[in-house]
């Protein structure tokens, strides 16, 4: 079994860059990059929801839209717009974010989240969720915590964190498990799987992802603080992951 890990350890994510407030006209926005996967998220709202029959008089609703840009793939043009995969990811993104979000103060309204990916190299739904949670916080919405998300998995029983495309597409027994976590409580809001993995390994690899979740949380927190801080926080660099805030 040979796969290149680009000098990373098995429990080490790719380089993370997080920024907040990059889309001036949006109510909240964020950028999240992990390795070669980049995600932009823009939040609009709360605003009145039309058509009217979709309104919920008890609370506001969350609407996510995940979109890969035409040039974002590995050379083949990605056809833009809704497709089966994009719809599914939009739906799971919504469900991953809703547990932290409190929209009871906004009846009959909608919060729109647009996630755009200019470049993808696996883990795009995770990058999208990370960006979206920062953008929602930037929009001043009531949420009990941020959401951090990363893909874990294994190649021929070698447990790995943050798989890139080459690893995901490896010719062997592979599992790719995107997960999203509420970092403070450790609750999972997203857990999907593509591939085959044993029960023991699944628990082990979920445990393995926790350190990366912590690193992502730090990056998100620093990015949010940096936007509003009077003096910018000095970017925290951990020896392992090389978390960087620009």
């Amino acid at each position: 079994m040979v796969f290149k890990r680009e000098g990373r350890k098995n429990d080490e994510p790719r380089k993370i860059i997080a920024k907040v407030g990059i889309i001036p006209r949006a109510d909240g926005s964020a950028y999240f990059k992990i390795g070669n996967t980049e995600a932009y998220a823009a939040v609009y709202g709360p605003r009145t929801l039309f058509p009217r029959f979709k309104q919920d008089p008890t609370k506001g609703i969350l609407r996510c839209n995940y979109n890969m840009m035409p040039f974002s793939g590995m050379g083949n043009r990605v056809r833009p717009g809704a497709n089966r995969r994009a719809k599914e990811i939009s739906m799971v993104t919504e469900k991953a974010l809703l547990p932290v979000l409190d929209l009871v103060d906004y009846p009959n309204s909608v919060v729109d989240v647009f996630i755009e990916l200019p470049q993808t190299d696996a883990g795009s739904r995770c990058a999208g969720i990370c960006a979206a949670s920062m953008a929602l916080a930037d929009a001043g919405l009531v949420m009990k915590d941020l959401v951090c998300s990363v893909g874990v998995g294994h190649i021929d029983n070698t447990l790995l964190v943050d798989l890139d495309y080459d690893e995901e597409a490896f010719d062997g027994v592979v599992a790719d498990i995107p997960l999203a976590v509420i970092p403070r409580t450790g609750e999972y809001t997203l857990l999907q799987m593509d591939g085959i993995i044993g029960k023991e390994d699944l628990f082990k690899v979920m445990e393995l992802g926790k350190k990366t979740i912590g690193m992502i949380y730090e990056a998100q927190k620093n990015a949010l603080k940096e936007k509003y801080m009077i003096e910018p926080v000095i970017a925290k660099k951990t020896a392992q992951g090389g978390i960087k805030n620009e």
Binding site: D27, G28, G45, P46, D102, A137, D138, A139, G140, L141, V142, M143, K144, D145, R184, L224, Y228
Partner: peptide
Amino acid sequence: IIANKLGLVHIEGKVVKLISLSGR
């Protein structure tokens, strides 16, 4: 006591609150 939004911390005696910085 946990923050549930983005804001500036304001402590008045025993009371901990946040001042909003963003939002509609």
